[in-house]
């Protein structure tokens, strides 16, 4: 296996991801956790522009309708979004891998039944499923939240991880079952290896790379579900709802995470296009970064992606050639022995 750090795709993806993640913490450390607010721009003592300000040198991503700097909001929110997505994918893999291996080995006789239970899950759009499950947790009730932000984030991560565990584990199960019928595993079983030993010694090492790729795909999928949930006003860490009948604010995100930034501003696309567009592009950048890392990793573990060569045309089969070589070797040995004598 070549080092992943020699793969340009992996390095580019890693740099983008690290920029957002490290940058987010550094930004909060340097500028504090409140974004800069600009209500008006004055020129010679006269107001020339009022918030929301379009992108300019002062505010590269513009400001929102309350004058908060979008760049600051994006940088502050990056850590919640990225860490939450990575957390969901990690918890999901942690639960799904053991179940998947169990389906592929211990319960392989019942695989058809298990699979036909899991199959209809594919027809439930993940977003709707997540929305149904998360709504009671994340939507602020009339009397206010009874949980803290961190409790809600943890519950959200675990719930979002669990809802696709069946799909991921059936995927791993099918893959493990394919490997289970390979000849070398048959040999190992004949020699008396237990199923646990086959899993730890053969199946897991064989599938390690695939599992890493699967983890990356799960991160991407989670990010996409976050954007969808944002459109439905369910934000990471809960949605602040104003129940004031007269002057109710629109639903607000508690942290500046991206799903909230995108979801709460989508309606202003026509008038203030940079408000929804900036978080959407940032989502796309992070997803591209993860995809690039996956591609780089795959290239590193499978060697350079080569254009497959045509099969060489041989008039004699490989076995015949091997047999010939064997014969030749024996003849040579006999000759040499004769010489020594």
């Amino acid at each position: 296996m070549k080092s992943v750090w020699k793969q340009p795709y992996f390095v580019i993806g890693f740099v983008i991801l690290a920029f957002f993640l490290v940058g987010s913490f550094v930004f909060e450390w340097v500028f504090g956790s409140d974004p800069k607010q600009t209500y008006f721009i004055y020129e010679n003592g006269r107001v020339v522009q009022a918030a929301p300000l379009p992108p300019s040198w002062m505010h590269p991503f513009g400001t929102d309708q309350f004058g908060y700097d979008m760049l600051a909001k994006i940088m502050l929110g990056a850590k919640y979004t990225i860490i939450a997505a990575m957390g969901v994918a990690a918890v999901r893999m942690f639960i799904a891998v053991p179940i998947g291996f169990a389906i592929g080995t211990y319960w392989q006789k019942r695989r058809l039944l298990i699979n036909s239970f899991i199959d209809p899950l594919h027809y439930v759009p993940m977003t709707i499923f997540a929305y149904l499950m998360l709504y009671p947790v994340l939507w602020e009730p009339m009397e206010g939240f009874s949980t803290t932000v961190w409790e809600r984030i943890i519950i959200q991560v675990v719930l979002m991880a669990i809802i696709t565990v069946p799909i991921v584990s059936s995927l791993i199960g099918n893959e493990a079952n394919l490997l289970y019928h390979e000849e070398y595993i048959l040999a190992s079983r004949t020699l008396g290896a237990s199923r646990l030993r086959i899993i730890t010694r053969h199946l897991f090492p064989m599938m390690r790379e695939k599992l890493f790729v699967l983890y990356g795909q799960q991160v991407v999928e989670t990010l996409v579900v976050f954007t969808h949930l944002g459109l439905l006003y369910l934000f990471i860490g809960g949605t602040e709802v104003s129940y004031d009948p007269m002057f109710g604010d629109p639903p607000k995100s508690i942290a500046y995470e991206w799903a909230g930034l995108f979801g709460s501003s989508f309606r202003y696309l026509q008038g203030v296009p940079w408000l929804p567009l900036v978080p959407a592009i940032c989502f796309a950048l992070v997803i591209l970064a993860v995809a690039a890392m996956i591609e780089g990793y795959t290239r590193a573990v499978s060697g350079k992606v080569k254009i497959p060569k045509r099969k060489k045309v041989a008039l004699v089969s490989d076995d015949t050639i091997k047999w010939n070589q064997q014969q030749l070797k024996e003849k040579l040995q006999v000759l040499r022995e004769n010489e020594i004598r």
Partner: peptide, 12 residues
């Protein structure tokens, strides 16, 4: 890389 664009960005 086109495949990994999120659907919301395309619609937007």
């Amino acid at each position: 890389f086109l495949e990994s664009l999120p659907d919301i960005l395309i619609i937007l």
